[in-house]
Amino acid sequence: MSVPLLQINNLSIEFNTRRGNLVAVEDISFEVAEGEIFGIVGESGAGKSLTGKAIIGLLEAPGRISGGKILLNNERIDNLPYEQMRRLRGKSIGMVFQDPLTSLNPLYTIGRQLIETIQTHTNHTATQAKNRALELLREVGIPAAEKRIDQFPHQFSGGMRQRVVIALALCVNPKLIIADEPTTALDVSIQAQILTLLKNLCRKHGTAVILITHDMGVIAETANRVAVMYAGKIAEIGPVREVVQNPQHPYAQGLMASIPVIGRKMKYLAQIDGSMPRIAERPSGCAFHPRCPHAIELCNKQIPELLNKGKTKAACLLFRNGNP
């Protein structure tokens, strides 16, 4: 593999507030290859969604990128002027949001929204755009597309709406789709349909996906590689199988153990005591050390870097000098 599709180098995101700078995401780096499904998991407030928004240039003030680079096809996209970024958005990077009802305009028909997006990014005539829109709706599995194209979002069910949103994200064949909690608002049975759809479409078109979620089950069956985020940093990154079944970082271990599994009988779930520190109250050194069962003295002084450990990389001082 030559140059990866997307490179994030030492990205930091800050919020300037009256009470000083709050660093929400600190010095994270990862790469996404073409056609890959890359998962980002973590608890709420870990910085997953901010990372996704930073990539597509939708950070809301006062949030801003305070350091690092985002490269798409080896070109920097984090410092593009607004107009250029607007053209890139949708054309090269698509986005699927959590709530399909709020990400569609309730006053326009589905067809009009699709056609508008297609015409913004291509030179299609109205008829060509409409045909493309119909083709997309069929592709995402909406029955009776000819009839449905003239309907409004409220006439669709949750799962169908999310299919429309996926069609919108795919409409000009972007290289990358950022899916921020695409199935959280849906029932398990519909969730399975949507994930299968997303996976198949991306395989077919060679689209890479960044899948942001808090649900390890979704990651386990969809993603190729995964990053576990904690308090604005990547705690562990590696192939899904390794991270899910054999996590190395103490936080990732605690997280995996706290998920109830069908068929595994136990009286109590393993739990990590305490909760993730708020953004203004992050401890010094490794942010996880106050809750970590293996913490050593050094942990509250030194910020750990991502170190190779087995097949994954974990940011933990325990692994320095190739220790256990």
Binding site: A220, V244, Q245
Partner: peptide, 16 residues
């Protein structure tokens, strides 16, 4: 059948 399979036994989910 629709439950995500965290053990990754490789079984395909059959969507409802």
């Amino acid at each position: 059948n629709a439950i995500p399979d965290i053990n990754m036994s490789g079984k395909e989910r059959i969507p409802v």
